[in-house]
Design a protein around this nucleic acid. Structure first.
Length: 895
RNA sequence: GGGCAGUUAGCUCAGUUGGUAGAGCACCGCCUUCACACGGCGGGGGCCACAGGUUCAAGUCCUGUACUGCCCACCA
């Protein structure tokens, strides 16, 4: 600590140093008994096998900004980190690596395979944790959790058993989405619907009584062996005469009934639908409704079963080709057309899914969804609000949740079947014998639970539930959940249901759904497209603070972020700017400055910067409490760069001249104070660079020499100083700034080098302005780079001069040598037209009687003042123009 | 088929109760000023998608249209 600032900011060493310091001092490990309003967040747990991607980077940055800000505000902050075992995803990863060794999970066996995954997790699970740390996330590492920890696993079993006993978990036959590659069932929302080009075959089914035929349209002829009915719309007059008749299945020659249901779309295909209850979700529903036969013709490996006649043993693709040939041969293919439709893919491995009938475990979420609906927005508010409808719609149309997965990595289902009497026992602890018959031959259900089952418990299982812990008492429910909208259903809604059911309270007060990070062209980032921006690479190149600032600055509510490397590079400049501003301050403030009474400080520039600081403090705080991250970043950026650096630092330079002894005390103190508080404001967004500057900055004279003085992460948010709020003084400063800018513009437009010192004459409209300009002549002299300054209310103006008008005040820059009078006149004309245009719009309102009578008095007054000022400026400009015209005329006469 | 966003400067986007259109980057000039060239100063550039409506006043509120994107859904 206490290192001086080197010439250039080098992020890497600084980041490592502070990460170590914060970890060593347990800066982010809160004490449940400590005072302060509780503030808690649970991390959206990344997959153990995953690597940090830009989405994590955004998520972690936003959460960290909130947590660090909450700490500054004196809250007792807990941020729990952790990882998710990610069942299918992790199993797939390890299976792939096994395949490289020529092995498979089957060859290893269940026990060895699971052991292998645990080993894998030992190696790679730490990688993601290290990466979370690299983002600067102020998590409490002492409370690190993993969804398959003993504690969390116990919570999973408890929840399962309780829901089972309450009748909210049941086992049943159902048509589910089957991935024949992952070899498991998937929940409805794990299905990825992607458009696919296919053929639509129109096939003739003959009637059993020989009286004719009916033509159906299908995209899946291989399921024909599983047909158990044909269905038409009851009001479809084309088919009325066929209802109740029997049709003959092509090739297999089985008899099936022709039934009716209004589900059928008369417009699609031929209006006649073949019903295959075992291999289509809708057909399943029709089969149940009309009590049809259920014939499974495709097995879980995608192979035709013995029910499919002579197609048995073929793959479903081979069967499709063969059956078409066979039907074609019989002359019953009526038509083949192209069709584009959506088919389901596995969201993990992208294999085409097969609807499949099997016995699975379900959660009766229909019974849990109402409470989750009703808790919003009274108990839990969702931001941005545009997601409300989506959330409600999903809950209101929810279907029971299939939670069993036929994989090996995950929480085993705590259900045992007795080999002797067949009794199913669902208990938390592995039973020794069957509770019914006492037989010890018990077989545990082979399935594991959907990953999202344990994730749904995350907000309370991580705090030690089912024990009643201090953490739960202090920090449940959590303050806010920050996550991407893409897992609103997978995760957020399910946490709501479980939290309410088991804790009696929804798990969060706020839900903030942030955007997706896309590439510069708005495309989703993906490895296959090759357009990913790797956060770690960005940290390496530009520093963590630059990355964090970029993500924060672009995190406007409800909008996707289009990110490109150039933006991060751009914000690195800001980090550098801050660094150099600090170096400048440290050049002059090397030890603790003597306090001055800043509420009564003299000097317009000091009053102005202190006033601005107060405004920015309030705005920054407000923005963060409203999740307007981009506004918070923007506010800090503009203040530091455009006000503190561009103006204040330049303004104090003359004061810092050793000859200006009497000014030094005030300047040093204000410089120090403003930088200090700016560092606090920026710290949540840019923790590293601010912490490093902070420790180099002298501590207050009265501060105890403890860690609290040198670690910015422990510094409270600066209190408001109402005495420093001085709007009028700030406006005066703005007037002086406008005068300076006017002079600079004249110089620039006349191609006079900025360093060339000119004379300046200021002719004020009134004595107040005159006094103001006279009082601040030093500022104007320096920043406008003048040789001399004359202020007056009336003076003989040299004819050869450039001029401008600011709020009625004439800016006269006398010119030496040859002057392009015509060019100068043109410049004034341009300005004149601009002002006139403004006056026209102002007058349009003022001359309108309905405006003056109906608009609020203050608006009318403001408009009048504006018009008056414009008039003043226009008059002045007019006289300047006249003078130039005269001079020009003289010049021409002389020639 | 339903729902939700978006359309503002060349590009990416702000614009919080309606009250004089903003930023960053890019662009054009000038500047090796002792914190910073990852810099300074100045400048150009916009019928706020389109059409109506409400209002004294609309980028902002309402209705419709056109594109763009996303989510949900059982069209075989």
């Amino acid at each position: 600590m206490g290192d001086p600032l080197q010439k250039g900011y080098e992020p890497h060493n600084v980041e490592v140093k502070w990460r170590r310091h914060w970890e060593k001092t347990r800066a982010f490990t809160p004490d449940p008994d400590a005072p302060g309003e509780p503030f808690s967040i649970v991390i959206p747990p990344p997959n153990v096998t995953g690597a940090l991607h830009i989405g994590h980077a955004l998520n972690l940055t936003l959460i960290d900004v909130l947590c660090r800000h909450a700490r500054q505000k004196g809250k007792n902050v807990l941020w729990i980190p952790g990882t998710d075992h990610a069942g299918i995803a992790t199993q797939n990863v390890v299976e792939r690596s096994l395949a490289n060794e020529g092995a498979s999970r089957q060859s290893l066996g269940r026990w060895a395979f699971v052991k292998r995954i645990w080993e894998w997790r030992e190696d790679y699970g730490h990688r993601i944790l290290e990466q979370i740390s690299a983002m600067g996330a102020s998590v409490d590492w002492t409370r690190l959790r993993f969804t398959m920890d003993d504690g969390l696993s116990a919570a999973v079993r408890k929840v399962f058993v309780r829901l089972y006993n309450e009748g909210l978990i049941y086992k049943g036959d159902y048509i589910i989405n089957w991935c024949s590659r992952c070899h498991t069932a998937l929940a409805d929302d794990e299905v990825d619907h992607k458009p696919d080009r296919s053929k639509l075959w129109h096939i003739r089914y003959h009637l059993a009584d020989g009286s004719g035929h009916i033509v159906i349209a299908t995209t899946r002829p291989e399921t024909i062996p599983g047909d158990t009915a044909i269905c038409v719309h009851p009001e479809d007059t084309r088919y009325t005469h066929l209802i109740g008749k029997i049709a003959i299945l092509p090739v297999l020659n089985r008899e099936i009934p022709i039934i009716t249901d209004s589900y059928v779309d008369k417009e699609f295909g031929t209006g006649a639908l073949k019903v295959t209850p075992c291999h289509d979700h809708n057909d399943w529903m029709l089969g149940k409704k009309h009590d049809l036969a259920f014939i499974q013709v495709i097995d879980e490996n995608g192979i035709m079963t013995s029910e499919s006649g002579h197609y048995a043993g073929l793959t479903k693709q081979e069967c499709r080709e063969q059956i078409i040939i066979d039907i074609q041969a019989a002359g019953d293919i009526v038509e083949v057309s192209d069709i584009e439709h959506a088919i389901g893919h596995c969201y993990r491995c992208h294999t085409v899914l097969e609807p499949h009938v099997s016995t699975q475990w379900f959660v009766a979420v229909k019974k849990l969804s109402k409470a989750a609906h009703d808790a919003v927005p009274e108990l839990t508010q969702i931001f941005p609000e545009s997601w409300l409808k989506t959330y409600f719609h999903w809950l209101d149309n929810i279907r029971d949740w299939c939670i069993s997965r036929q994989i090996w990595w995950g929480h085993r289902i705590p259900a045992w079947t007795c080999a002797a009497c067949g009794t199913l026992t669902v208990v938390e602890k592995t039973p020794e014998v069957c509770p019914k018959c006492g037989d010890p031959r018990l077989a545990q259900d082979a399935d594991v639970l959907d990953t999202w089952f344990s994730s749904a418990l995350w907000p309370f299982s991580t705090m030690g539930w089912p024990d009643s812990t201090n953490d739960l008492a202090r920090w449940y429910p959590t303050s806010v959940l920050v996550t991407g909208f893409d897992i609103l259903f997978f995760w957020v809604a399910r946490m709501m249901m479980m939290g309410i059911h088991f804790m009696g309270t929804p798990p969060f007060r706020h839900v903030y759904l942030h955007a997706l990070v896309r590439d510069a062209d708005g495309r989703k980032m993906s490895k296959s497209t090759g357009n990913v921006i790797d956060p770690l690479e960005m940290i390496n190149k530009y520093g963590c603070d630059a990355l964090r600032f970029t993500l924060t600055a672009f995190a406007a509510m409800g909008r996707d972020i289009r990110l490109s490397e150039e933006r991060i590079e751009g914000y690195r400049h800001f980090v550098n700017k801050l660094w150099n501003a600090a170096r400048f301050v440290l050049l002059h403030v090397s030890d603790a400055p003597e306090p001055v009474d800043i509420e009564n400080v003299s000097g317009l520039h000091h009053q102005w910067i202190l006033h601005r600081l107060e405004t920015v403090k309030a705005q920054n705080d407000q923005a963060l409490t409203e999740y307007r991250f981009n506004d918070a970043a923007q506010t800090g950026y503009k203040f530091l760069w455009n006000e503190f650096c561009d103006w204040y630092l330049e303004l104090v330079k003359p004061d810092l001249d050793p000859k200006a002894e009497n000014q030094q005390r005030t300047v040093r103190y204000v410089l120090w104070l403003v930088l200090r508080e700016t560092l606090i404001l920026l710290h949540p967004i840019m923790p590293f660079v601010t912490a490093e500057i902070w420790q180099a900055l002298p501590a207050p004279q009265d501060a105890a020499a403890t860690d609290f003085g040198t670690d910015l992460a422990r510094e409270p948010y600066p209190a408001q100083r109402p005495g420093c709020v001085r709007k009028e003084q700030a406006q005066r400063m703005e007037f002086v700034q406008a005068v300076i800018v006017a002079v600079r513009t004249i110089k620039a437009e006349l191609n006079i080098a900025p360093s060339h010192k000119t004379k300046l004459i200021l002719i004020s409209a009134d004595s107040v302005h005159a006094a103001l300009l006279e009082e601040n002549r030093a500022m104007i002299m320096t920043l406008a780079r003048l040789e001399s300054l004359t202020t007056a209310t009336d003076i003989q103006v040299p004819k050869a001069s450039a001029s401008a008008v600011v709020q009625g005040c004439q800016i006269i820059v006398p010119l030496l040598g040859t002057v392009n009078l015509a060019g100068e006149l043109q410049r004034l004309e341009k300005e004149f037209t601009k002002l006139e245009k403004e006056l026209v719009t102002a007058n349009k309102n003022l001359l309108n009687e309905s405006f003056t009578t109906r608009a609020p008095a203050e608006v009318v007054e403001r408009e009048q003042k504006r018009a008056a000022k414009l008039m003043e400026s226009i008059t002045t400009l007019q006289s300047l123009k006249n003078r130039f015209a005269e001079a020009l005329a003289e010049e021409q006469t002389m020639e």
